[in-house]
């Protein structure tokens, strides 16, 4: 499948701070791609490189069929961007900003705009200084979603939105993809949002991509949690390779097992006689946290919202 975004080995320093340290990212046409990582992992820097605002120190990056730094203005006609903190001009109304940005991009679907204003319950007459944080985000979202573009770059777009509006956002993004086959890069640390919307996910840490693939592929790399009620106490589970965090309480067992050893572990359980069994695949949150636990003390280093 054709790639809309191809970045490899991106490096970027700000003074002595290393923001990107060999980051790779591939986004395919028509997919919603989740871009996960805690604050400071390099998500916003990557998006700014993709927008041609920052020049990478090293690495290659292609956006559509061009170079984001050299072909910025022509590429910008084909994309829309929503930052995590939409800032507005205090003396322009929200409606004016939406129209202006749409026109500067090269086109705005008026019908779509009015529909989105209604769904997001946004009053376009208020002046920029009068909007709350959540409403400023809505202005940015309506301006981007009503634009006639192929690619949406969304950098934590729902920060400050209430749960109702977050739900509207999910519906709208799902529709966008279904209807026009738009490509979306969604940077977020709201994992439920990513889980609900994204086809594929890239997880970044300290400016580097540590994991990328579909959610199913990522799950395959990790452990499944098993809780079972057995006929007799289990035997030999503790010695089995790939079994972790084993708790045995009489005939109750709970453990995590690496996916390749799942079959062997289940054999051990059926040998003891299974009365009840709950198997839970890893949540995205667990996948995510796995990359942010420091190896030494097991403490969670990353901030994770929800």
């Amino acid at each position: 499948m054709e790639n809309i975004i191809t970045a490899s080995g991106l490096r970027k320093h700000f003074g002595s701070t290393r923001a990107l340290d060999g980051l790779d990212l591939e986004v395919r046409r028509g997919e919603v791609h989740g871009f996960l990582g805690p604050n400071g992992a390099g998500k916003t820097t990557t998006i700014r490189v993709l927008l041609g605002l920052l020049k990478a120190d090293a690495g290659t990056v292609r956006l559509f069929d061009g170079d984001p730094w050299n072909d910025a203005t022509s590429l910008h006609r084909r994309l829309a961007y929503v930052p995590g903190d939409v800032t507005l001009w205090p003396n322009l109304s929200g409606g004016e900003v939406i129209d202006l940005l749409g026109r500067l991009r090269g086109g705005l679907d008026n019908k779509r705009k009015n529909e989105l204003l209604e769904r997001f319950d946004l009053d376009p007459k208020k002046k920029g200084r009068a909007y709350s944080k959540g409403n400023r985000q809505k202005v940015g979202l309506v301006a981007a979603l009503a634009s006639d573009v192929e690619l949406l770059l969304l950098d934590e777009p729902t920060s400050g939105l209430d749960p109702l509006m977050e739900e509207v956002f999910r519906q709208v993004v799902a529709e966008e993809q279904a209807r026009d086959g738009r490509t979306v890069l969604l940077s977020s640390h709201i994992l439920s949002e990513v889980e609900a919307l994204c086809d594929r996910v890239s997880i970044v840490r300290d400016g580097r991509t540590v994991e990328t693939g579909t959610l199913t592929e990522l799950r395959h790399l990790t452990r499944t949690t098993i809780t079972a009620e057995l006929a007799s106490p289990p035997d030999g589970l503790a010695d089995l390779a790939g079994v972790h965090e084993l708790h045995v309480d009489g005939t109750q067992v709970r453990f995590e097992v690496d996916t390749p050893q799942l079959d062997a572990a289940l054999r051990q359980l059926t040998a003891a006689g299974v009365r009840g069994l709950v198997s839970r695949p890893p949540t995205l949150e667990e996948l995510f946290l796995r990359h942010y636990k420091t190896e030494t003390n097991g403490e969670v280093k990353a901030e994770v919202a929800r």
């Binding site: 003396n91 109304s93 409606g95 129209d99 026109r103």
Partner: peptide
């Protein structure tokens, strides 16, 4: 009551210069 602005941009507000005019005219 806070003063409201127009719900839609005027036809002229479509260039960076038009935006700059709004920001500098005062």
């Amino acid at each position: 009551p806070p003063r409201l602005g127009p719900a839609e941009a005027s036809a002229g507000l479509r260039t960076p210069l038009a935006l700059a005019w709004r920001l500098h005219r005062g």
